[in-house]
Design a protein around this nucleic acid. Structure first.
Lengths: 141, 141
DNA sequence: CTTGACCTTCCAGTTACTGGAGGCCCTAAC
DNA sequence: GTTAGGGCCTCCAGTAACTGGAAGGTCAAG
């Protein structure tokens, strides 16, 4: 089948599929006119990739998962290890974002948010400890 | 002062500072030998950028915040609006990551994680509904 | 005078695509 | 027969925000 059909079936953009071919994640055949020719198996791979990517696995992790997917004898422990790593990554990111949010929320609550120029958010970005700005900084110390 | 000193004071890598100059976020002078020459004001800008970036603001948001920072007459409401947008972005990302984590955790809990080849994680990636793999897919339907 | 640290520019690579130009192929309608 | 339209092809460039490295100039110490 043509790339357009594969795209619909796998829910991956045409461009992305071509990119995946370029980096060796799929290897469709070619027909006489040079068009890519996707088999059912190719489409399965693409669907697998679509799902794995949407679950936040990186391309390299997908490559690894794909080879495990195709290894009839692989241990489920291997897959579980990659997944565990991924969950830890996610946890780390969530923690980071939460602490970011805490800081920003605190700043926002302290900010009156009106027409006045005083702003605790800017003050914090500028160094927090003093109210100096770029323009008044040099004459204040 | 030289870029190395500015780097230490601002806690930004030398490469990053050069990059920030390239994209117009700082504009240090030059000394006779062609070396960049950072003023106190330049370093304040760099510190501001360091802090804002570490709080997750994008370069473009930093540019905006920086101009607000230097506008003595800007309303704190403007800064608050950018911050609010940022917090919303963060919330969205946290939600995404949490739902990702839920899926992966469920899959991991269902996975026995031993030497056997059966693996619910792979099965899910492959389409969940059937236990077929790329290699057995075609002979199973 | 040489060593080594520090500075310079420029080019390439990272991640995972996305957009566009220029051009071939195929089908269907006139 | 030919023309219009889509779909397909490749190649190049750009995204965000740096990071690494090569090749080479500058400066202070020993």
């Amino acid at each position: 089948m043509n790339i357009g059909t594969a795209s619909e079936l796998s829910q991956l953009p045409v461009k992305t599929i071509r990119y995946y071919e370029e980096i060796g994640l799929v290897d469709p055949g070619r027909t006489g006119n040079g068009y890519r020719d996707f088999s059912e198996t190719d489409v399965e791979r693409l669907k697998f990739l679509q799902r794995a990517r949407s679950l936040g696995f990186s391309i390299e992790q997908c490559r690894e998962l794909l080879s495990l997917y195709e290894d009839r004898n692989r241990a489920s422990a291997d897959v579980k290890a990659i997944t565990r790593t991924k969950i830890q990554e996610i946890d780390r990111k969530i923690d980071e974002l939460n602490s970011l949010k805490r800081v920003l929320t605190t700043l926002m609550e302290a900010c009156h948010g009106d027409d006045r120029p005083e702003c605790p958010i800017i003050d914090d970005l500028a160094g927090a400890f003093s109210g100096k700005t770029l323009k008044s900084g040099s004459d204040q110390h």
